[in-house]
Design a protein around this nucleic acid. Sequence first.
DNA 1: AATGAATGAGCATTCATTCAT
DNA 2: GATGAATGAATGCTCATTCAT
Lengths: 192, 192, 192, 192
Amino acid sequence: MQVQKDDVRNKIIAAATEEFLNAGYQQSSMRNIAAQAGITVGNVYAYFGGKDALFESIISPVWQSLNRLISIPVDTQDLMTLPTLNQITDLITETFLENRPQFLILMNKSAGSPYKNARAELSAMISGRLSRDILPQCDPLLADAMAGAILEGIFTVFNHYGGDGSRLRTLISELLGLLLGSIPCKYPPKHE
Amino acid sequence: MQVQKDDVRNKIIAAATEEFLNAGYQQSSMRNIAAQAGITVGNVYAYFGGKDALFESIISPVWQSLNRLISIPVDTQDLMTLPTLNQITDLITETFLENRPQFLILMNKSAGSPYKNARAELSAMISGRLSRDILPQCDPLLADAMAGAILEGIFTVFNHYGGDGSRLRTLISELLGLLLGSIPCKYPPKHE
Amino acid sequence: MQVQKDDVRNKIIAAATEEFLNAGYQQSSMRNIAAQAGITVGNVYAYFGGKDALFESIISPVWQSLNRLISIPVDTQDLMTLPTLNQITDLITETFLENRPQFLILMNKSAGSPYKNARAELSAMISGRLSRDILPQCDPLLADAMAGAILEGIFTVFNHYGGDGSRLRTLISELLGLLLGSIPCKYPPKHE
Amino acid sequence: MQVQKDDVRNKIIAAATEEFLNAGYQQSSMRNIAAQAGITVGNVYAYFGGKDALFESIISPVWQSLNRLISIPVDTQDLMTLPTLNQITDLITETFLENRPQFLILMNKSAGSPYKNARAELSAMISGRLSRDILPQCDPLLADAMAGAILEGIFTVFNHYGGDGSRLRTLISELLGLLLGSIPCKYPPKHE
DNA sequence: AATGAATGAGCATTCATTCAT
DNA sequence: GATGAATGAATGCTCATTCAT
């Protein structure tokens, strides 16, 4: 019974993940998901409670991972110097590699969902780091813009990249080198 | 009569612009727009013909401006060296300054609309420029990522910036300096 | 002023006649009619009062003509023997020749209009004649069917025939010969 | 459950058949049908998918039967002499007897529907037969008119006749005798 | 646990008609 | 007399959600 239940759960999760990834949260239909999973609508509700909760079930693990990043207070006193941005993007990349579709849904297809602000929060966290450690005198708006740019760059690579992890990590690293290499001292370009 | 007609037109445009900006094209409702404009649904249709056409009325001017950029063939032979990217972002900034909400709708809220690909087209154009003039040996995916990053950075500033044009231009210029300053020779950082 | 008024009237009549003939009463739109006439919707209402009344204005003359036929009581005592059916169809043909589009509208495109029963009434009248004079012992239902058949036959010719009156009269006459030639004595086939 | 489901299906079919028969395809409203069936609009869509499909569900069986007639090529070489017209009308009568309201809807109330040309196609087929076998030298227009007349006559009987099949067959036979009895040799009047 | 029928509010759109100007 | 903006109810259709079985 338990086996069967997990089987159904997994089918729903798989179908919903595909639907959310293809159509986005708002344009996804519970009917489609149920049909794709080969079960009935009512049963999707029995398992997950609703569209929001189903989305949450899928996205929550990725969100937990990212939240560990996001929830680190930026004004902490421990020395958080330059390498951290690399660590952050590494962590993001790891999270992506572990849950590609979920990650892409969360970052690009969550409009209208309970997680609609996820990307903004991640961006805000990165912006905080930039302000504190890399661009200290910088206009906060510029830090936000840099954070958004970095994320968008990374996600563009994520979106179009289908290969394995190591090449991906190189790409992301190169990208960061390009995006941040000009910042004096603190982020020396890797390839010079 | 004419005055009143323009008044209603403007009310509809204002209401629709706000609705599109808040909710995005797909989630905007003609009923809401009509109610917000203080008129009946049928009258919105009398003025604009439909949701698509209403959206088009609002977005078309901005799109015309941007299209001039997008439609420049990237593989042209005339010398198109580095300064061009600055020119591009200047033009984008001017377009934004002339029609702020419309610009933001077109770039961030047009999912599902006839203009849904606008941002991607603009990004592709910038990516083409980068590949050709700034990052010639670069992986095309990296050029796409850089283009996306630059656009996202600029749009983030646009989104949060409420002041006048001159300060904005400075911000965008600083942003580009940060994003591209590391690229050897061709894009010397402005602030050193 | 009077001249102008008639001019407008005529334009509306012409536009409406075409619209009714093409689209039928129900599917015709006051907007289309006004646009086709080159005037405004409100003015159509000023001249004719509404869709029903406009239809009535166009159809009424034809209807008057036909009504003279229809309103002759079938149970009158004067001898109304066989030739009468020919007279009836002659009159119908004359009415058609004088007002082709109006006639076709009334007979084929008046569904949903105040004249929706016109054809049925005409048919009932012919049926009455048939019962009384041509098919006296016949089942009333059969008389109805014959009346309907005769009318449909005639209208089919009307619908597809674009030429002049004399050829049309010949066609109708031949048609009646075919349809009624078998009825003994009273309707001798013309061509034998 | 299954019983109930069929029950609802039948209620919808019954309500829709009545609505289509009374108001015609175009003027029928899904809301009316749902209300008449005692269920909600959405449920009608759940069962039948849409107005067209609902109409199709009702009309399709009758259309299949008639289509067997219509699709017989007229220019075939096998001997197709006079009795065939009788066979055709017999088949039409059988089809009507099996599905009375559906037949009447298809022939008289299908304007605007996917089956709007059904009657014209049937008429054209009969016209072809008449031209080929019964009225060989005849003006094609006259053959069309005769075909239309025959159909209209038959349908008039169908419309007003509520009794059983045998009486109906007699009526149709008599009607054809009247309509075609004059045609020399080939269609000898039955009643002489 | 599973079904899937049923709900009802929502959507974009159309159109005959009215009426202030 | 003429305008055309405005109305508002109607239409076909969708979909997240509920609930009796």
